[in-house]
């Protein structure tokens, strides 16, 4: 198991090390013709992470709430929608092309509109996060439900299964790994959605903090926010992957 992580860890360490040397020697700043303080080395970012730990934690909590609530809402509605579209062919034919087409709308750019409508609170962020999470969850889960072997459905009918029993014993377990794939994609984009929502208008959150740091040329803390955001995304993805391994034991 640990072997699997050894090489990627080495590559990462080498890259961070190279960055440390290049940044602290001023090589990057010189090449890009920037002031030295605009190019923080990993050690400075680490220091900033530590010094600003309570500020970062407070704002990370705001962003994490937006991500979790928006994702949770999309998960419930998305799974429900997938089941409904699976059960009703008419509804699927009527709405599925629209759901797919809606993905060409760059949802994050409607964030400013939502801020105009709903203000600076958590509402617009939840809406953005939920909207971008919805699609991968619905599409993957529906794919999973539709991938059920028709012979298995026939077999269940001759074994006296009701529609609900076929759903619960065959269709839902078949779709479960697909739903997990959708959720893992969704949780990664959820963080992006939350930050865009905050950029459009907010008074707290890591996205908000990044705008302030940007204006004040606090580049080390700017990077620190990026590190925290990445950590949130990786942690949530990891939790889902772990849950998947626990639940989908037959793969």
């Amino acid at each position: 198991m640990s072997r699997r992580w050894l090489l990627p860890a080495l590559v990462l360490a080498t890259m961070v090390g190279a960055w440390q040397v290049a940044a602290s020697s001023g090589a990057i700043a010189a090449t890009l013709r920037l002031e030295d303080f605009l190019v923080p080395a990993p050690s400075e970012i680490a220091a900033s992470l530590w010094e600003n730990r309570s500020l970062l934690a407070d704002n990370a909590w705001v962003t994490l709430q937006e991500v979790l609530l928006g994702f949770g809402f999309a998960l419930v509605v998305g799974l429900g929608a997938a089941v409904v579209l699976h059960l009703s062919e008419t509804l699927r034919r009527a709405t599925y092309p629209l759901i797919v087409a809606s993905q060409t709308v760059p949802i994050i750019v409607i964030a400013p509109i939502l801020v105009v409508w709903f203000g600076y609170g958590i509402g617009p962020k939840l809406a953005i996060v939920a909207l971008i999470c919805f699609f991968p969850i619905v599409v993957n889960t529906l794919d999973g439900l539709r991938s059920v072997d028709p012979d298995a459905t026939k077999m269940m009918r001759t074994l006296d299964a009701s529609r609900w029993q076929t759903f619960r014993r065959v269709e839902a377990p078949t779709a479960l790994p697909y739903a997990f794939s959708g959720a893992k994609i969704a949780v990664a984009v959820a963080v992006i959605g939350a930050v865009f929502g905050e950029w459009a208008g907010s008074d707290s959150g890591l996205g908000h903090l990044m705008l302030l740091d940007n204006a004040q040329l606090e580049t080390a803390r700017l990077f620190a926010s990026v590190v925290v955001l990445s950590a949130i995304a990786i942690a949530l993805f990891g939790l889902l992957a772990l849950a998947e391994r626990r639940i989908v034991t037959w793969r």
């Binding site: 026939k154 377990p173 037959w250």
Partner: peptide, 18 residues
């Protein structure tokens, strides 16, 4: 007919989660 017949499909179609 459904209540009187049990159908065994070509592939075993055992459900892997059971």
């Amino acid at each position: 007919r459904l209540t009187r017949c049990a159908y065994m499909p070509q592939r075993d179609l055992l459900l892997p989660w059971l």
